[in-house]
């Protein structure tokens, strides 16, 4: 399978600050990718680079094998739902669908019309008078009906209430099921991703902390609990992601592909949320090799 997004040493600088630096990753096709990280981690920057909204300061990024926003054909392949789901407040819902139809050769009008109908929206309603949830749904409709190969969503649900959030995610997952669609969406809430994503990218402090398929991540990360000890004295193939200590006890989250043999440890499963939080919490090890999981197929 070809990569939907491939980045090599990707970096973006705003003024003197690196919003994203030295990012190398590959996202396989057909995944629903969750991009997680605290605010200011570089999520929006990465997604803007992927849709060609901005150009990288260093390194390269290819999306579906092409340079982002290189031409109409490339633009047609990538759908993008921007943060805060901008819409033209003066234009009606029908106008927005018409906009999509006029500006996209691959536009699926029937799909768009059905979605708006199912949402119970009056097509004559102005976009400026929609609720946040309705706005997000309309923006999603525009993104889906374009029939892209890759749909990128930047914090689509962060401003929505739980109900609207669930509705939105349901709409998104239906589209993924109906169309052969790869999705990359960002969130700072891990709970948004847990049910929907099968691939994760964790950014923190403008750097990539980890990326990989969810199952693989879960299979290679363990929580170790045991008598207090120095994490530096673990076997070389066990990378400590995070460590916390009480007077007598140590709790570590480690990444390893080998089984844990030391009988002193109680080994337990980590959840995706624990894993993400562990990576977001701790600064990247200065000298250690970057923790990128290779996708082996």
């Amino acid at each position: 399978m070809t990569a939907v997004v491939a980045a090599q040493g990707l970096g973006k600088k705003y003024g003197r600050r690196w919003a994203l630096s030295d990012l190398t990753l590959e996202v396989p096709a057909g995944r629903v990718v969750g991009l997680v990280g605290p605010n200011g981690a570089g999520k929006t920057t990465l997604l803007s680079l992927a849709c060609g909204q901005i150009a990288p300061t260093s390194g390269t990024i290819t999306v579906l094998g092409g340079t982002p926003a290189a031409g109409p054909a490339q633009l047609a392949k990538v759908g993008y739902v921007a943060q805060d789901t901008p819409l033209y407040p003066g234009l009606s819902i029908a106008d927005h669908l018409r906009l999509g139809a006029r500006l996209n050769p691959t536009w699926d009008h029937e799909l768009a019309r059905r979605r708006v109908e199912r949402l119970g929206l009056d097509p004559a309603r102005r976009a400026g008078r929609l609720s946040g949830g309705q706005r997000a749904q309309l923006a999603l409709t525009l993104g889906i009906a374009k029939r892209p190969e890759l749909l990128i969503l930047d914090e689509p649900v962060s401003a929505l209430d739980p109900l609207a959030r669930r509705e939105f995610m349901r709409g998104l997952m239906e589209a993924v099921a109906d169309q052969e669609l790869s999705v990359v969406f960002s969130s700072h809430l891990v709970s948004d991703l847990e049910r929907t994503c099968d691939h994760l990218i964790v950014l923190a402090g403008s750097r990539l902390r980890i990326s990989g398929d969810a199952e693989e991540l879960l299979a290679t990360h363990h929580r170790l609990t045991g008598p207090r000890r120095d994490p530096g004295r673990l076997p070389a193939d066990q990378h400590v992601v995070s460590a916390s200590h009480t007077d007598r006890q140590s709790t570590l989250i480690v990444r390893t592909t080998a089984p844990i043999l030391d009988p002193a440890w109680t080994v337990s499963q980590v959840s995706l949320e624990d894993l993400v939080l562990a990576y977001m919490d701790t600064p990247p090890p200065a000298a250690a090799p970057r923790p990128v999981l290779e996708i082996q197929r």
């Binding site: 909204q53 109409p72 633009l75 033209y88 500006l103 996209n104």
Partner: peptide, 13 residues
């Protein structure tokens, strides 16, 4: 209004 981010991501350069 941020709408450039909407319109720049349609299939028009």
């Amino acid at each position: 209004g941020g709408t450039h981010r909407l319109v720049w991501n349609q299939s028009v350069t």
